[in-house]
Amino acid sequence: MFWPAPMYLPLLVSAVLAVVAPWAGRRMAPRAGAWAMTCAAVVAAGTWLTELAILAFTAVGQLPPVAALGPWSVRVLAAEDPVDREFAAVCAGVVLVVLVSATVASWRRGRALVGAWRECRGLAAGGDLAVVEDPVPTAFAVLGLPGRVVVSSGMLRVLDARERSALLAHERAHLRHRHHLFTLILHLTAVVDPALRPLERAGAFAVERWADEDAGVVVSDRPLVARAIARAALASNRARTASLGATGGPVPQRVRALLAPPVPRRTGAALAFAALIAACGVSLAITAHDTERLFEAAMHAPRVTGARLPPR
């Protein structure tokens, strides 16, 4: 009566999305790619979590106190349930683990964002720029209201005037387009669904490339941005010994991309994203509908009084 295969379809579709999205996203122009990959990550993680919760509920619903709330028949539910009970119990465990780790990850990232903002709020800034006296070349943007670009004097001294403009344009692009939120969302979706880690990396790289291309438009010279990135990376690499957690992508790839012609609009990749996102929704709807029918059957089976019958 209930086919098991559609019950697992959303897991399959979200897995396909996790594999295809980084691949398709890398082929798109950075801005479109960043948007597509972030949306795909949210949909894939949402589908995965909702599906796990649905599967888990087929087992949770068989617990007598829960069934009494329905009310539905535990006997009928157990007989008709296409989902293996042990498997459903595992799903329930995974949902709990995911919820806890997502909460922890949000808390840690949120605290880091607020902490970075607090520390940078204290810096004296000319316009949106705070310069710190430090021979080690570094530059970064901090989210805030308003956001801040922080650059060390060492970085300003290794770049020429036009390269400095390119650097500032890159960091301002991060602030203007709220890139911190993209990377935050990508990170949290990868915590919810570890299969999305390649997508997190590809998305973060697209965000970095987006800022590069934006800077290229502002200074009207893409090779100039490439040169600024290369010079800054070489200088900061020479000055630094400690290894840092690197955001963004491999620098040579960014430089190469800026030296190559701009990526044209890729309608095919965008359509692939749209189709897979739609498939997630449809498969989830089918599963939800099947589960609803399952529980409805269990509700009507024990001849509960008319008050509980749905109005027809």
Binding site: R108, R109, R111, A112, L113, G115, A116, E119, C120, G122, L123, V132, D134, T138, A139, F140, A141, V142, L143, V150, S152, M155, L167, H170, E171, H174, L175, H179, H180, T183, L184, H187, A211, I229, A232, A233, L234, S236, N237, R240, A242, S243, L244, G245, A246, T247, G248, G249, P250, V251
Partner: peptide, 23 residues
């Protein structure tokens, strides 16, 4: 302050949109 921002690594480094990553 800036060194502490960068040296903490992990989440702290991840929330800063750095111009260049390590090579």
């Amino acid at each position: 302050g800036m060194h502490s921002l960068l040296d903490e690594g992990g989440d702290r480094a991840a929330v800063l949109a750095r111009f260049v990553s390590d090579l």
